[in-house]
Amino acid sequence: MIPAPFDYVRAGSADEVVGALAEHGDEAKILAGGMSLLPLMKLRLATPSVLVDAARIPELSYLRDDGDHVAIGALTRHRDLETSDLLGAECGVLRAVAAQVGDNQVRHRGTLGGSVAHGDPASDLPAALLALDATFVVQGPGGERTVSAADFFLGFLETALAPDELLTEVRVPKTGSSGFSYQKFNRRAQDWATVGAVAVRNGSTRVALVNMGSTPVRARGVEDALASGASIADAAAHAADGTEPPSDLNASPEFRGHLARVLVGRALTEAQA
């Protein structure tokens, strides 16, 4: 399968990406690792007429200690996250979640920014960033703005990014090297999560779910129960409260609810250990 024809623009800087997007309008798409976009283009589910390749912009690929948070360039690959000592020490949960994305080949190409911008509720990293209350830095024709993770994921494959905007940086608070867990349930190797549960304990405990709705979601019922002193088992029973899990070949909504309760229980237990 070969994608429909398109023009290819290789951008040398963030400004060039934004310039190219402004020039070509919403016919253009940013190409990062291509691990989500190219399969869609091969199936002709996506047919952009211009691809703006941002993968070679060195100024967008970094992990940096920025005082109270770690700043990560949007074009940083999953592989660089899963091998980063800085991330391991300061935000171990993100490093651990990155290591569970797809397979080695996918992690050698796919980027953090691509995972976030794609807005797939079945992706691992967006849920982790939601649990972490991460901040996204976005550059557009009007300059730079920041969006909190809570305001970023709007719907299935829909985010707060406008078609002419580039995600440049992800900021994650320092939550340390321990006190977290990611429980991913899938039925085949290398596959997306049927359901996933991320727990991060750092003072309070925050929990987010993968593939339990049209966006990654916070398990507020669980968080509130824990805050008012409930046991792990009692809190985990609220994991699916208020969610609208999808139905597909892998699981019914009811089974997803069951998985969420079980996985959240395991995640909380591991995060407290």
């Binding site: 399968m1 290819y8 290789r10 190409l31 291509g34 691990m35 190219l38 399969p39 091969k42 390749d53 993968a55 592989r79 397979d103 080695n104 080949q105 996918v106 050698h108 190409r109 290398q190």
Partner: peptide, 29 residues
């Protein structure tokens, strides 16, 4: 598979494994 799943097309790009059915030649320029 031609759908990024099977890895039969794996090659090394600057020493790292990648699925060459899910990459454009221009990206390897």
């Amino acid at each position: 598979c031609d759908t990024s799943s099977c890895g039969a097309c794996t090659v090394l790009l600057d020493g790292e494994s990648v699925k060459s059915c899910t990459m454009l030649a221009v990206q390897a320029d």
